[in-house]
């Protein structure tokens, strides 16, 4: 019966739930969680990814170096080789309970997203590091700076500049991937709109609006990245 409601009618149903039945509160919470998980996940991912990538490019003379490089490989293989939903479920229902860690579901999501994007970003970062002229590392080392100082002060800043567009894509992927956190009971945009839809079993408008919100988010991020790139380029030209 409801399936045959006209669009204006459907819109009214949605609007009513959104405004009068706390729908907007759910959506705001969902939006907030989505952004928190994606942003913090990205930041954690950058830190983890940078460490893995930096270790990976150390000349492998010493046994400890090779040992840590191997650990990095296994880490990356695991997180790239399993779906993020699986990682989330494993983390929430198996790993954290096993370790006796009891934290809010959002924190679990942030942690898993960070660990996961760390694996992807390590590969991106390694490409970025390899794209930097090896002469930069040589110059730093010749001045007496350590491998890690040169890496952090000279090579990685240049690498990040080179991979900014790719990092942006990773961020967009993370934003979209947050739609799976409902699996462990966290509220994201997806869960919020499902709630609104379920209120009257009228899903068309809520889900269309949901899609629209994702698109707008992605467009805003794309724009921000482009602005950042332009700023960085200008920085090196004059001043």
């Amino acid at each position: 019966m409801r399936f045959f409601l006209s669009f204006p009618k459907k819109w009214d149903v949605f609007y009513n739930t959104f405004v009068n039945h706390n729908g907007y509160k759910e959506v705001l919470t969902g939006l907030q969680n989505t952004l928190i998980i994606a942003v913090l996940g990205l930041l954690i991912g950058i830190v983890i990814g940078t460490v893995i990538a930096a270790v990976k490019v150390i000349p492998p003379y010493k046994r400890v170096t090779r040992f840590f490089q191997r650990i990095g490989d296994i880490y990356v293989a695991f997180f790239r080789g399993t779906p993020m939903v699986v990682q989330l479920l494993l983390g929430y229902y198996v790993l954290f309970p096993m370790l006796g860690i009891n934290m809010p579901v959002i924190n679990v999501c942030v942690t898993i997203f960070g660990l996961n994007s760390g694996a992807y970003i390590s590969e991106i970062m390694r490409g970025g590091i390899n794209s930097v002229d090896p002469g930069q590392m040589e110059a730093g080392r010749a001045l007496g700076l350590s491998f890690f100082s040169t890496m952090m002060l000279i090579v990685i800043p240049q690498a990040i500049k080179n991979i900014l567009p790719t990092l942006g894509n990773e961020f967009i992927t993370l934003v979209k991937e947050t739609s799976i956190v409902g699996f462990v009971g966290a509220t994201d945009i997806c869960v919020a709109f499902r709630y609104i839809g379920t209120n009257n079993y009228e899903f068309m408008v809520p889900y269309l609006v949901m899609a629209l919100i994702y698109i707008v988010l992605v467009l805003i991020i794309t724009l921000l990245i482009r602005l950042m790139e332009r700023r960085l380029k200008r920085n090196e030209r004059n001043a």
Partner: peptide, 29 residues
């Protein structure tokens, strides 16, 4: 690293740090 501080090296391809200004290049190490 301690000894390299006292052995200056100049390369064919200059290798100035691209992400640093001239002054920063000289001051960094």
């Amino acid at each position: 690293n301690l000894h390299r501080e006292h052995i200056g090296m100049v390369f064919q391809s200059f290798n100035l740090f691209n992400n640093k200004t001239v002054l920063e290049n000289i001051m960094l190490a």
